[in-house]
C-alpha cells in the first residue's frame, strides 16, 4: 500500500523507484524481498486497478460509432438482433471462453498490473485470466491465432504501450458485440495521470470489419483496498 503510494508519487515527479528496496520496506511486506522491479526510469503501474465506468459499447475518442465497414455492420447487426431477442448464447463468453483483449478490460472486475524486470503482467479477477507481456521484443511473424493474441510492451516516455496481434476471431471487442477478425492489431496505451489514475486508450486496426483505424478511451482507478476473489465462469456462468 505504502509502496504503491510511493510508486505513484515518484511517477508523478518523473523519477524512477530506486532499484534495491530498503530493508524496512521489505520487512513491511512480510519479509518478501522485491526482486522484480520495473525498468529503470519508468513509472510504476504495479497495483490493483478497476474501470469504474461500465462501458458496454465502445465509442471512438470523439464519442462516435466505430467506423464499421459493410461486413462489420452486417455482423454487428446480426449479433445485436440476437441479443435483443434474448439469445445470450450468441455471446461467446456465455460458454466461458476467454473474453479476449480489449474486452477483458471492460469486465466489471478488478485486475492487477504487476510490472517486473522482464515483463508486465495483467492478472484479471474475471475467470482468472492473465497476460504475461515481455518488454521490447518483436511480434511473431506468423503466430497461431489465440484469444489474447501475442503482446509486446515498451515505454514511450511515461506511457506504457502494448502492441498485440495474432488474435483468433472468436471474441467480441465489447459486450455489445463489436466484431473483429484475425487481422486485428491492437495498441493499448496506459498513462498515469495522477498517483491513482490511468488514462487509457486502445487503437484498433482491422481491415476485415472497419474502414479505418479507430481509438477508444477509458480511465482506470487504483483500488488498493480491494481483494481479488476467485471467479470461475464454468461454475457460475457469469463473466
Amino acid at each position: 500500500m505504502t509502496l504503491w503510494a510511493i510508486g505513484g508519487l515518484t511517477a508523478l515527479a518523473g523519477v524512477a523507484l530506486p532499484g534495491p528496496l530498503p530493508a524496512a520496506a521489505a520487512a513491511r511486506d512480510g519479509g518478501a524481498p522485491l526482486f522484480e522491479q520495473p525498468p529503470t526510469g519508468t513509472p510504476n503501474l504495479t497495483g490493483k486497478w478497476a474501470m469504474l465506468e461500465a462501458i458496454t459499447h465502445l465509442l471512438t475518442a470523439d464519442g462516435k460509432e466505430p467506423p464499421l465497414n459493410a461486413a462489420g455492420k452486417a455482423e454487428y447487426a446480426r449479433r445485436q438482433a440476437a441479443l435483443q431477442a434474448g439469445n445470450r448464447k450468441i455471446d461467446p463468453t456465455s460458454d466461458c471462453i476467454m473474453q479476449g483483449t480489449p474486452r477483458l478490460l471492460y469486465a466489471p472486475h478488478p485486475f492487477l498490473i504487476l510490472q517486473t524486470t522482464r515483463s508486465v503482467n495483467f492478472i484479471h479477477e474475471v475467470n482468472h485470466t492473465f497476460r504475461i507481456i515481455y518488454w521490447d521484443e518483436t511480434l511473431p511473424d506468423d503466430p497461431d491465432p489465440n484469444y489474447l493474441g501475442y503482446s509486446i510492451a515498451r515505454f514511450e516516455g511515461s506511457t506504457l504501450v502494448i502492441d498485440t496481434s495474432g488474435f483468433n476471431d472468436k471474441t467480441w471487442l465489447d459486450y455489445s458485440g463489436l466484431p473483429h477478425g484475425e487481422k486485428l492489431k491492437l495498441q493499448e496505451r496506459y498513462t498515469l495521470s495522477g498517483p491513482n489514475t490511468i488514462n487509457g486508450a486502445a487503437t484498433l486496426t482491422d481491415p476485415d470489419y472497419y474502414t479505418a483505424p479507430w481509438t477508444t478511451r477509458f480511465t482506470l482507478n487504483r483500488q488498493p483496498g480491494m481483494s481479488l476473489g476467485e471467479n470461475v465462469c464454468m461454475d457460475t456462468h457469469q463473466m
Binding site: 500500500m1 509502496l3 504503491w4 513491511r28 511486506d29 512480510g30 519479509g31 518478501a32 524481498p33 522485491l34 526482486f35 522484480e36 504495479t46 492487477l112 504487476l114 517486473t116 503482467n121 492478472i123 475467470n127 482468472h128 485470466t129 492473465f130 504475461i132 481479488l228
Partner: peptide, 24 residues
Amino acid sequence: VYSPGMITILHEVAHNVRYIHMDR
C-alpha cells in the same frame, strides 16, 4: 511473480492463478 506484499504463481494449465499474501 513478486510484487509488494504478494507472490503470485501463474499456472499455464487452465490459467490457474494463486495469490500468496506475504503481508497478511
